[in-house]
């Protein structure tokens, strides 16, 4: 426990958790981003009827790739990753549900995504996929979207099961992670979409960033008033240049105002800059949520 700062206030002490570090932050970020890419692809294609099957098919496939790539970081972090299939044995654990969401998302999303791109790209199974019942393909698209969204929510629920970690064990965290994940996926679509869809995504991302700012502000309020641990955590947050400067300012506030400005000016370069900042902010949010995970020990 070298180098840890302990604070004996009201005769509790707060100890930084060292179990989950940057690798788990990458897992949470890619899980949220990749899951939300699938969720938004299903939403845009099936509900908003945007006719860009290649874009949404490839985005879902990329999303699945990112989620599973992120999973590798969780596996590397385990002591015995070769027995990881045991995670499907104890349903009281959120990891059980997260692994299930990811597995269903991967299967349903892969079939749906490949079906969408089969009309534009030829690959070994493309002819067979074209013959699938369109109603079945749509159903797989809905399943993929829902499972993608649940994957993003799960990343917050995973952390909320630590009763002694004030910053994590609250119902706001899954909501914050879901909104942030949707925002990063929207930023991805702003980067790769045709201009008419990108323009719509800017409005969506402004709304999501506004919501994220409100939730982060509510977190600050909660930490200020909740407990000695909350006050300790927020003092750490406010004195962190990385958190305040790179996440709150550069990863949240700057892209929010940039996107508002870019909408008025129709500036593609500003949109690209804002999207990159949103993606950076999405990772930093998770990194710092893990970093500010302090146990409150009663001694």
């Amino acid at each position: 426990m070298d180098g840890l700062t302990m604070y004996f206030g009201n005769y509790q002490h707060f100890v930084h958790q060292t179990s989950w570090g940057w690798m788990i932050a990458v897992y949470l970020f890619l899980g949220g981003l990749g899951g939300s890419m699938g969720a938004l692809s299903s939403y845009f294609y099936l509900i908003r009827k945007e006719k860009h099957p290649l874009l949404f098919g490839l985005s879902t496939l990329l999303g699945i790739g990112l989620v599973n790539f992120g999973g590798i970081f969780l596996l590397i972090h385990m002591l015995k990753p070769w027995f990881a299939f045991f995670v499907w044995t104890h349903p009281t654990s959120w990891i059980f549900w997260g692994a299930s969401f990811i597995m269903i998302y991967t299967i349903a999303g892969a079939v749906w995504g490949l079906s969408l791109i089969s009309s534009s790209i030829n690959f070994p199974f493309s002819q067979k996929l074209k013959t699938l019942n369109p109603s079945l393909v749509d159903k797989l698209g809905y399943i993929s979207g829902i499972m993608g969204l649940l994957t993003a929510v799960y990343t917050g629920l995973l952390l909320s099961t630590a009763p002694a970690i004030t910053l994590w064990s609250n119902p706001g965290l899954p909501v914050l992670f879901m909104v942030s994940a949707l925002s990063t996926a929207t930023a991805y679509f702003m980067l790769v979409s045709p201009s008419n869809i990108a323009h719509e995504n800017e409005k969506l991302d402004i709304a999501l960033l506004a919501l994220e700012i409100i939730i982060i502000s509510a977190f600050f309020n909660y930490l200020f008033i909740s407990s000695a641990a909350g006050k300790y955590i927020i003092s750490k947050m406010f004195s962190s240049i990385g958190f305040m400067g790179f996440f709150v300012v550069l990863g949240l506030l700057v892209p929010f105002f940039l996107e508002i400005y870019a909408i008025k000016k129709h500036s593609k370069s500003l949109v690209v800059l804002a999207s990159i900042l949103v993606l950076m902010g999405g990772f930093l949010l998770r990194f710092y949520i893990l970093k500010f995970g302090y146990y409150t020990y009663p001694w």
């Binding site: 989950w20 385990m78 027995f83 995973l158 952390l159 099961t161 630590a162 009763p163 970690i165 146990y295």
Partner: peptide, 22 residues
């Protein structure tokens, strides 16, 4: 049976668990 994911280490409010590493 344990795969060492450390979810239990995080969940324990009393700091009672630790990884017995390779």
């Amino acid at each position: 049976r344990c795969i060492g994911c450390e979810a239990c280490v995080i969940a324990c409010p009393y700091g009672a668990r630790y990884p017995y590493e390779s």
